[in-house]
Computed example of a mutant assay.
Amino acid sequence: MNTILLGFIGPQEIIIILILLVPGFLGVLLLVLLIRYLIRKNKASKNVEQREGQIKNQQEPLITEEKIKEYYPVKEGNKITLIRFDEIVDLSAGNNFVFLTDVTGKEYLVDSTLADLEQKFPEEFIRIHKSTVVNKNLIHEVKKLGNGRFDLVMKSEKERVVSCSKSYNEKIRDLIDF
Score class of each variant (00 low, 15 high):
N47S: 10
E141R: 13
I80H: 00
K143A: 06
H129A: 06
T113I: 10
K144T: 13
N42E: 14
N42S: 15
E87R: 07
V103F: 00
R40V: 13
N137T: 13
Q12I: 14
V103P: 03
R160Y: 02
P61H: 01
G77P: 12
Q119L: 11
I139D: 05
E123L: 11
F8Q: 07
K79V: 15
H140G: 11
N147V: 12
E141T: 13
T132M: 04
P11I: 06
L34V: 08
Y168C: 08
E87C: 10
E141P: 00
Q59D: 06
M154K: 03
E170L: 11
K166V: 14
D151S: 14
L138W: 00
I126R: 02
I16A: 13
Y108W: 05
G148C: 06
Y72C: 06
P23N: 09
L26E: 08
I14A: 11
K69N: 12
L117S: 10
N42W: 05
R51G: 03
L29T: 11
K171L: 13
E107Q: 15
L82C: 04
I139H: 02
E60A: 09
G10P: 00
I55K: 08
Y72L: 13
F125L: 07
L6W: 01
F99N: 09
Y71R: 02
E87L: 04
E49I: 12
E76W: 00
E49K: 12
L82A: 05
L109Y: 06
L33H: 00
L138Y: 01
V133M: 03
E70M: 11
N42V: 03
E65Y: 01
K75L: 09
N169G: 10
I35K: 02
V142S: 02
